[in-house]
Amino acid sequence: MIELVQATKEYRTGAFGKGKLKAVDQVSFPLNPGEICSLIGESGSGKTTIGKMILRLTDISFGKILFQGKDISHHRGKALKEYYRYVQGVFQDPFSSFNPIFKADRVFSMIKREFFPHEKETQWKEKRDACLRSVGLNPPEVLNKFPHQLSGGQLQRFLIARALLLDVKVLVADEIISMLDASTRIDVLNLLGMLKKKGLSVLFITHDLSLGYYISDKALIMYKGAIVEMGRPEKVFFNPIHPYTRNLLSSVPRLDKKWDDVVLPSLSVVYENLYIPEKSKGNLVFQEIEPDHFVAFSQ
């Protein structure tokens, strides 16, 4: 559906932009239809930048982003608007995603004005209500209200419903549940799982490993702008190879074991030349060390 090919984002820093900072370094991965892909990393690892590049909220310095085989990295105007019909994002803070002066359902009428100006009002309302119901909201309960009258979970569902009104094929979900309460966050995750079954592709950006494991078909571990390990979650999480992934997994607070009791599976083979961002000189190359489990090597 969407494929990143050696996508790189460089920021210029310092006086007159002499310094260079690679926020995202040669990231390549495909996002297939009906797949939830988790992008897991610490703050500053570049995971949000990848989401922004896919949504074209920031320019791509080098490399390509292919959507249905076409490079979208230089789309403008009409072509870009057409692209947004299929690719949408939902962000971390539901309260700042809405304009507090207007009612929350204004996001829907804006979609209608921009993308479906010719559709009949009654037909549109039916479609809107169906979308709201599909994300688990009761339309009379949530329509005609201001953002502060709705809970964070409801607002996040609102934004997902807004994306569904379009012919959305790819949803970039950037930390969408980290601001929600523990008792409601799991339901928003379950909603993503349900939409996945209907064929939606989701790029789920998170710093929480257990959430990434819970929902995804593929896990990508990011460190300092590069993907260091990726593959099926059960393989990456239960047989971590890269030192960074291992460190991450030993630090996750768990409910069944104390930190001191966590023992990671020992490595059967010693791997040399693993790619360490900012240290390794060579190019990043992925090697498949077991089916569906890739680790970054330096070459």
């Binding site: 523990a182 008792s183 409601t184 966050r185 799991i186 339901d187 995750l189 379950n190 799982g193 490993l209 257990s210 959430l211 494991y213 819970y214 929902i215 979650p233 999480f237 997994l249 996750v252 768990r254 409910l255 069944d256």
Partner: peptide, 20 residues
């Protein structure tokens, strides 16, 4: 609350969790 918290090893496909 405790049962709604995912852990590494729990997946949506096999053991879906539910919120309150």
């Amino acid at each position: 609350l405790v049962s709604s918290m995912p852990e590494v090893g729990v997946t949506y496909e096999k053991t879906p969790l539910y919120g309150i």
